[in-house]
Design a binder for these strands. Structure first.
Length: 591
RNA sequence: GGGGCCGUCGUUCAGCCAGGUUAGGACGCCAGAUUGUCAAUCUGGAAGUCGCGGGUUCAAAUCCCGUCGGCCCCGCCA
C-alpha cells in the first residue's frame, strides 16, 4: 500500500475519492461499534473511521491499534456529518471511511505523549528525541530552518556567490575559544582542531580569487553552554572581495529582510538602525542592546561631580562614572522590592545601588536623601516624573554599564516593557580594535586579529592603539547577537603590526598563521565578510525560548547528548592507537 | 571554577517547612462497556527501592552531609 496523499491535504474537494494515507496513530477514540483514529504525518492529521457495520473484520483489526503504531489505510474521503465537523482541524470537514488497513509497525507505550504543549521534561525529550521530533512544533522549527537555509542559498547564488566547504579537521589556533581537539593517529602526539569558524579559510579563498564565498558552516567551541549557546552550531558564513563595509551591510540587511518576509510575512525596517559601539554602551550598557523597549541609561557626570554624596563624587573623580535608570512607576515599589533590586545589582557586580523615589506629590524619598539637592537632580534627569523610581550605580565604566545594562533587561521583563510583537534589528559599528587585558598585561583583539582598522585610525596603531576603531559590524536583533563581521586586513605589514601589538611573537605568528601572512604577501585583494548565527536566527524567528529547539540533536548544559550518551569513554586499544593516555579518574571503556 | 532552582508510579505534579496512616491526584497504560468522538465517556485494575550513598532518630520522601543528573546565571564564549 503506497500513500496517495499526505495527512494534511484532504478536504471537501476530494470527497468521493479513494485514497491511501500512511502515518502514526495520534489518537484513538473507541466507541464500540465505531472507532476513530487520528492518523498523523509531517503534514497534518486526518480522522479515520472504522465502522463495524460497514466492515466488521477491519473494525476488529482496528481495535488493536494503539498510540504511535505506524499504519497505512485505504478508504473513501467522506463528508463528516454536519454536527461532527471539527473547525480546529484543517482536514476537519472530512474523514476517511477505511476499507483496508496495513499495520506497518507497533510501538510500545511511550515515555511521553506527542503533543505540542509538552508536559515532558526537556531531558526526557532529548533522551527520546525521535519522539520529540514527531511533535508538530519541532517539525515546524526544523522546517523553518530548512526554509531559511534554502532562501539563503537561493539569494546568494543569485548574487554569484559560490558555496564552498572548508575543512572540519583543521589547525588549532591561539586566542579565541577553546578548541575541540582530534588526535591524529598517523602523526602521534599531534592534534587537529575542529574549526571555531572558517575565518582563515574564507580569507584564503578570497586570496585564491574565489571572490564571493558562502557556506552554511558548522562551528565548534569548547566553552560552557547557555540558553543561546551550543558547542556545535551553524553559521551562515560569507566573504567577499573588493567591497567596503556598506556593501556587506546592505547585502545582509536584504537577506535578513527577505528571510523575515518570506517565512513570517514580517516587514523589517529599511534601513536597519545603527549605533556605534560607544553609543550602545553609553545608552544601553551593552553592545547587544534590546531596543524593543526604551529605559536608557542616563549619564549623571555633572550631577555627581557637584553633589555632596561622597560615593558619587569619588567615582567621577577617579575616572569612573555615575549613571542611572528612570524606572517608570517605580515609586510604587515596596521597600522589600527595592532591597531585592539592590541585591541583584550587587550580584551583577555593583558595590551598591542608590535610589530615589519621586512620589506622586513630587516629594523625594531616598536612600541618600540627605545628600540630595532636588533642584540639581531635576536638572540632571529632566525626563524623571512623579511616580518614578531612580536608581544609580557609581563605579568604573565597565561595572556601571554591566550592572545597569543587566538591570535594564531585568526590569524590561518584570515591568513588561518588552513589546513581543516588535522586531528591532540594529547594527553596532565602530568597535575599538583592542582592549587592555589587566591579567595578561597586553592588548587583546575585541573582534579578532584580522579585523581592519578604520583607515583614518591607522596612525593610532602606533600612537594610541586603544583609541583605534575597526571596520567591524555586529548585527543585533532584540538583544541577541545575530552575527558579526568586518573588513579584513589585507596588507601583510598591517597584519604583522597587529600581531605585534597583540604580543603574538613573530615565531608564533609564523607558526600559527604563517600561511595567512604568506598568502597576504601574494596579492591579497581587499576583502571582508560576516557570519550569522543560524541557530539563534531560527530561535528568534521561530519564537522559541531555547536554541536547543532549533537543533535536531542538541547537547545538554554538560555538552552531552542524552540520546547517544556521547561523549563516552573509548577502549584502551583505541587510545593506544592514538598514542593517548588519559589522566581522567574514570576507567576506560571495556570492549 | 562559582551561585541558584529542581529530582517522588511510564509522565507530570502534591506530600517535605512542622519526621510517625496503606506515599496521593491527573494524564498515560491494561481489562470491560460503549455507533459520532476529536482532551471522547463510564466502570474496574496494575503500576513507586521517593535520583544514589551515608548520617541523625525508636522511626526519614520529609532533617543533615556527600554525590550524580537536568535547567538558569556568573566566569568563559577573539
Amino acid at each position: 500500500m503506497k500513500r496517495s496523499h499526505h495527512c494534511g491535504e484532504l478536504g471537501l474537494a476530494q470527497v468521493g475519492q479513494t485514497v491511501t494515507l500512511a502515518g502514526w496513530v495520534a489518537s484513538r477514540r473507541d466507541h464500540g461499534g465505531v472507532i476513530f483514529i487520528d492518523i498523523r504525518d509531517r503534514y497534518g492529521l486526518t480522522q479515520i473511521v472504522f465502522d463495524s457495520e460497514e466492515n466488521a473484520p477491519l473494525h476488529s483489526i482496528a481495535d488493536r491499534l494503539r498510540n504511535e503504531y505506524v499504519m497505512a489505510i485505504t478508504g473513501n474521503v467522506s463528508v463528516r456529518p454536519e454536527e461532527s465537523k471539527n473547525p480546529n482541524l484543517p482536514t476537519g470537514s472530512i474523514e476517511i471511511r477505511a476499507n483496508a488497513l496495513e499495520l506497518l509497525n507497533e510501538a510500545k507505550p511511550l515515555p511521553f505523549s506527542i503533543e505540542d504543549d509538552v508536559h515532558a521534561s526537556e531531558s526526557l525529550r532529548l533522551e527520546h528525541r525521535y519522539l520529540d521530533l514527531r511533535r508538530p512544533r519541532m517539525q515546524q522549527l526544523l522546517h523553518l530552518r530548512s526554509q531559511v537555509t534554502h532562501l539563503t542559498r537561493q539569494y546568494l547564488h543569485g548574487l554569484q556567490f559560490m558555496e564552498i566547504e572548508t575543512p572540519i579537521l583543521t589547525k588549532s589556533t591561539p586566542e579565541g575559544a577553546r578548541d575541540y581537539l582530534v588526535p591524529s593517529r598517523v602523526n602521534p602526539g599531534d592534534f587537529f582542531a575542529l574549526p571555531q569558524s572558517p575565518q582563515l579559510f574564507k580569507q584564503i579563498l578570497m586570496i585564491g580569487g574565489l571572490d564571493r564565498y558562502f557556506q552554511i558552516a558548522r562551528c565548534f567551541r569548547d566553552e560552557d553552554l547557555r540558553l543561546d549557546r551550543q558547542p556545535e552550531f551553524t553559521q551562515i558564513d560569507l566573504e567577499m572581495s573588493f567591497v567596503d563595509r556598506e556593501d556587506i551591510i546592505q547585502l545582509i540587511e536584504d537577506l535578513i529582510r527577505l528571510i523575515f518576509k518570506e517565512t513570517k510575512q514580517i516587514d523589517l525596517p529599511s534601513p536597519f538602525l545603527r549605533l556605534s559601539f560607544e553609543e550602545s554602551l553609553n545608552r544601553y550598557g551593552t553592545d547587544k542592546p534590546d531596543l524593543r523597549f526604551d529605559l536608557p541609561l542616563h549619564d549623571l557626570y555633572d550631577f555627581a561631580k557637584t553633589c555632596d554624596f561622597q560615593v558619587f563624587r569619588r567615582a567621577v573623580e577617579s575616572n569612573g562614572m555615575v549613571k542611572g535608570l528612570v524606572i517608570p512607576k517605580g515609586a510604587a515599589f515596596t521597600r522589600n522590592r527595592i532591597d531585592n533590586l539592590i541585591e541583584t545589582a550587587k550580584e551583577f557586580g555593583a558595590k551598591g545601588l542608590a535610589w530615589v523615589k519621586i512620589n506622586e506629590d513630587g516629594q523625594l524619598d531616598s536612600s541618600i536623601a540627605k545628600f540630595l539637592n532636588a533642584e540639581s537632580l531635576r536638572n540632571a534627569l529632566p525626563t524623571a516624573k512623579p511616580g518614578d523610581l531612580l536608581v544609580f550605580v557609581a563605579d568604573q565604566a565597565t561595572i556601571v554599564h554591566q550592572v545597569l545594562g543587566r538591570l535594564r533587561l531585568l526590569l524590561g521583563e518584570e515591568l513588561e516593557l518588552v513589546d513581543r510583537t516588535r522586531w528591532e534589528p540594529v547594527w553596532v559599528l565602530d568597535f575599538p580594535m583592542f582592549e587592555y587585558d589587566q591579567t595578561s598585561q597586553r592588548y587583546v583583539a575585541l573582534h579578532h586579529p584580522f579585523t581592519a582598522p578604520h583607515p583614518e585610525d591607522t596612525p593610532l596603531l602606533d600612537s594610541n592603539p586603544l583609541q583605534a576603531k575597526t571596520l567591524a559590524y555586529d548585527l543585533v536583533l532584540n538583544g541577541f547577537e545575530l552575527g558579526g563581521g568586518s573588513i579584513r586586513i589585507h596588507s601583510p605589514r598591517q597584519q604583522e603590526k597587529v600581531f605585534d601589538l597583540l604580543k603574538i611573537a613573530k615565531v608564533e605568528a609564523r607558526e600559527k598563521f604563517g600561511f595567512l601572512l604568506e598568502a597576504l604577501e601574494s596579492g591579497a585583494p581587499p576583502h571582508g565578510g560576516i557570519a550569522l548565527g543560524l541557530d539563534r536566527l531560527i530561535m528568534l524567528l521561530g519564537q522559541t525560548e531555547s536554541i536547543r529547539d532549533t537543533i535536531p540533536f542538541p547537547k545538554t548544559q554538560k555538552a552531552q547528548c542524552l540520546m547517544t550518551h556521547a561523549p563516552s569513554s573509548v577502549s584502551p586499544e583505541q587510545l593506544q592507537e592514538l598514542s593517548i593516555r588519559t589522566t581522567a579518574k574514570k576507567p576506560a571503556a571495556t570492549p
